Simulated assay, not measured.
Amino acid sequence: MKTCLIIDEAPVIRKIAFRLLSREGLDVDTLEKPAEALGWIDNHGAPDLLVVGVSAKDKTIVDEIKVIRERGGSSMHVVAMIVEANLGLMTRLKRAGVASYLYKPFDREALEAVVHRFLEPERALV
């Protein structure tokens, strides 16, 4: 079973994403802060997909994602949930290992599109 780790400070985002992704057949877990992810990876191994909430106000998030990405390895796909298109932030996130972006607030279709692109590449081609 594919695994997904969701990190976001907002409980409602974690709850909604958890429910939607669990229905997709993923083994999903949630965390509030990126700093908790290193311990989670040490205990459970790297998730197949990491979905992390990003705020332009958080000056440490890019560095935290880079460290998580390095610990998780190259097989872990990282998706950043952002509120607005901020080219500078998006560029820094890309350099830190983020593969894609999901705009908040998201709906089921947007979330599924991101998940299927990384976890079921053959469906993305159809």
Rank of each mutant, 00 (worst) to 15 (best):
C4S: 05
L5K: 07
I7H: 01
D8K: 08
D8G: 06
D8E: 06
E9F: 03
E9Y: 02
A10V: 03
P11W: 03
V12P: 01
V12I: 13
K15T: 14
I16V: 14
I16R: 01
I16Q: 05
A17T: 06
A17D: 02
R19V: 11
L20G: 00
R23Y: 03
E24S: 11
G25N: 04
L26T: 07
D27Q: 12
D27Y: 03
D29Q: 11
D29C: 03
E32G: 01
K33H: 09
E36M: 06
E36H: 07
A37E: 04
L38A: 11
G39A: 08
G39H: 05
G39E: 09
I41K: 00
D42N: 09
H44K: 11
A46T: 13
P47E: 03
P47R: 07
L49I: 05
L49H: 07
V51G: 02
V52H: 01
G53I: 01
G53Y: 00
K57A: 15
K59H: 10
T60G: 01
T60N: 12
T60E: 10
T60F: 08
I65N: 04
I65Y: 04
K66T: 07
R69L: 04
E70K: 13
R71W: 05
R71E: 09
G72F: 07
G73C: 10
S74D: 14
S75L: 15
H77K: 15
V78G: 07
A80L: 11
A80N: 11
A80G: 09
M81E: 00
M81S: 12
M81C: 13
I82C: 09
I82P: 05
V83C: 10
V83R: 15
E84L: 08
E84D: 14
E84C: 09
E84H: 14
A85H: 15
N86R: 15
G88I: 12
G88C: 05
M90L: 09
T91V: 09
R92T: 04
L93I: 11
L93N: 11
K94I: 02
K94E: 02
R95E: 08
G97D: 08
L102D: 14
L102G: 14
K104W: 04
P105S: 06
F106K: 04
R108D: 08
R108F: 10
R108Y: 06
E109G: 09
E109T: 15
A110Y: 04
A113E: 08
V115R: 13
R117I: 07
L119R: 05
L119I: 13
P121Y: 10
P121M: 08
E122W: 12
E122A: 15
R123W: 09
L125N: 10
